[in-house]
Nucleic acid binder design. Sequence first.
DNA 1: ACGGGTGTTCCGAATACTGGAACGGATCGG
DNA 2: CCGATCCGTTCCAGTATTCGGAACACCCGT
Lengths: 264, 264
Amino acid sequence: MTDAEGSAYSQSLERGLAVLSSFRSGRPLLGVSELGRDIGLSRSTTHRYVATLAALGYLQQDTETKKYRLGPRVLDLGFSAINSMELREVAAPHLRTLSDETGYTVNMAILDRLDIVYVERCRSSRAGQREIDLNLHVGSRLPAYCTSLGKVLLAYLPPEEQAETLAEIELSRRGPNTITSRTALSAELKRVRAEGLAISNEELAYGLRSIAAPILSRDGAASAAINLAVHSSMVSMNDLVARLSPTLQRTASEISAHLGYRAQ
Amino acid sequence: MTDAEGSAYSQSLERGLAVLSSFRSGRPLLGVSELGRDIGLSRSTTHRYVATLAALGYLQQDTETKKYRLGPRVLDLGFSAINSMELREVAAPHLRTLSDETGYTVNMAILDRLDIVYVERCRSSRAGQREIDLNLHVGSRLPAYCTSLGKVLLAYLPPEEQAETLAEIELSRRGPNTITSRTALSAELKRVRAEGLAISNEELAYGLRSIAAPILSRDGAASAAINLAVHSSMVSMNDLVARLSPTLQRTASEISAHLGYRAQ
DNA sequence: ACGGGTGTTCCGAATACTGGAACGGATCGG
DNA sequence: CCGATCCGTTCCAGTATTCGGAACACCCGT
């Protein structure tokens, strides 16, 4: 096991982060033995990582059970990540305006391999409205291929990268209209790229419609995408595209412009 | 340098996390040399950590500048942290209701040593209202001693722990009414504990008023606090306490009850 | 009292880590 | 055009750091 990953690699760091990553949702409290079993390390080794993480504030030990939970220090990391995006800062006020003007929920997401990751979210201020939730919040992940945000982001990938990505995607059915054929998806992405607008009509889940537009950076790449999400009982597809897409696209262009993008 | 921290400590993990932590707000793009200088490591050693973090998706290399930025993987960590709190899930709907009822911004925070960390935030839906922002969002930190949330959390600390914490706090002036004497703060905390309500009248910043109440867990400790924040031009102090504190405290009690707290 | 679970500590062995040196590229100013 | 100087990256031998088995103290249900 001399150098499987190349010599420029820190085993300890990888293992320590593996410990940290074991604390996903649904497993908030973990013990040393349990963690060791998960990762495949002895209890003593695991304990050293855990102790280190605890000393640094990334983990906290529960005084009763002696098990560990994530510490507040971990929040810092996550939010440095979000805030290090000038993107988000620039976009936030535009998104709020868009949400207020339309009365619908607005989201912004980036692409991480096959997933999209929500980085900003403005819920509709319209009280009493049927909420589309799915337990979505900043940081949530969804598969790219069946969301309007994801399709925009995929569409603007450089050709080779897009091909590689598409090859990895597993096109499982998620909603009534999920695209399950690779050729159909490829064609759809071409269309999205041409129009600068992606539409998802119940591709992710029943009752869920959305349209999305790209945020373009200085070099013309899509660094993020924004969408408008509505419940199908509230807005028809025609209405969504005809009435709301201009506003959405205008907002996207404004944000792009603020980020230094110049249309040629 | 044999064992400064005790033998149960992983140097590599600490250093790797130090690399990650260097990416705070305002420094989104860092190079290997720069990082090495910050932490006090050679470029080669730093590079190994950086390469490891990049391979795992915690960092991304900018193709142009060859510098590194935080990767989406870091978001996962932060959000596992937040979501691993049943606290937050239980509280969210109550906070939304409270915000809708009152029309003001509602926050929830926990204590991390001398700071409070926001873990949930419901902005006032009342359009056009003067926004109190200070660039606050989930994950933001503020000093505990000059915020209503912080004073509640400090007030409910076990006596010894409270004493230790107070000893560490630096009481620098932040707003017109910041408490800058340790004895005054101690007396104030006693009052807060007795009343179950903390008030901050321009202690953190000019024009900022808030009241906060504790969320109590099964063992009677304050696991979090919630507040109502208003602009001083909008609501008088009397109004805030007389009209809004009952609603705030009721909401706090409801959340506490949901978490298993039983008043005796 | 027992067996099996836990978190924790200790230790010698060994391996994964360290940092100086060197390479290749980019960017600068002369 | 050319050194000078920064950068990220790779290589390497020496050793500090990490490894995991064993043992301890503790808690539990039997």
